[in-house]
Design a protein around this nucleic acid. Structure first.
Length: 194
DNA sequence: CGCGGGATTGACT
DNA sequence: GTCAATCCCGCGT
């Protein structure tokens, strides 16, 4: 029987280079409280985004109303809408004032699958993409800026540490508009459990 | 104040 | 493989 006591990662975990945080998030457990239930999954795919120097990042052209959370406190959720219909979940990294974030792209469901199926309106795969993941966990713009260290509503906690030889890296998805050096950088990381 | 486009997905040829 | 959905925002006028 696993513990239901929340063990949220502290802000210091997030207050680092987004690429380092991204790697350390693989294998962690993402927890969402939904109508008194717990929806949980293991994080299996992430992408790191930087600030001024990263033309693939929302923060590359400075702070705006949309991306303000990326410039704020580490350990907050940065949630935004793409294509008018899909929410994206990121965690804010770097110290306050320095833009950085990690996009949570996929997870392997651990608990509450039946609720996720209901939220998604279909069966597995339930969270093998960033938009699907947010749909499966009922994550939307109301959670933009949410403090992930509270251990309430939405947080991340330790779970597994993937073997290094099971971690792969490649270019980030959907940023063809970025300069080649950023578009092609291997800042997407994923874990295929064996 | 109008317009272009997006850190995606699912349906369809 | 192609393509539309759908809406907020960022930027140029």
């Amino acid at each position: 029987m696993q513990s239901l006591v929340p063990q949220p990662l502290s802000p210091s975990f997030y207050q680092r280079d987004p690429l380092e945080v991204a790697g350390d998030l693989l294998g962690k457990k993402l927890v969402r409280e939904y109508t008194g239930q717990r929806l949980e999954g293991v994080i299996t795919e992430v992408e790191a985004y930087f600030g001024d120097d990263d033309t693939g990042s929302h923060a590359s052209r400075g702070q705006t109303a949309r991306n303000a959370v990326m410039f704020g406190e580490p350990g907050r959720a940065y949630v935004y809408l793409v294509y008018g219909m899909y929410w994206m979940l990121n965690v804010v990294t770097f110290p306050t004032g320095v833009a950085g974030a990690v996009l949570i792209r996929a997870m392997q469901p651990l608990r509450g699958q039946e609720w996720m199926e209901q939220l998604r309106g279909r069966k597995a795969p339930l969270a093998d993409g960033p938009g699907k993941l947010c749909r499966a966990l009922d994550i939307n713009g109301e959670l933009n800026g949410w403090d992930l260290s509270l251990g309430q509503g939405l947080w991340i906690e330790p779970y597994q540490v993937p073997p290094l030889d099971q971690i792969q890296a490649g270019p980030r998805v959907g940023i063809d508009y970025a300069l080649p050096e950023h578009r092609d950088a291997p800042w997407r990381l994923w874990w295929r459990p064996e």
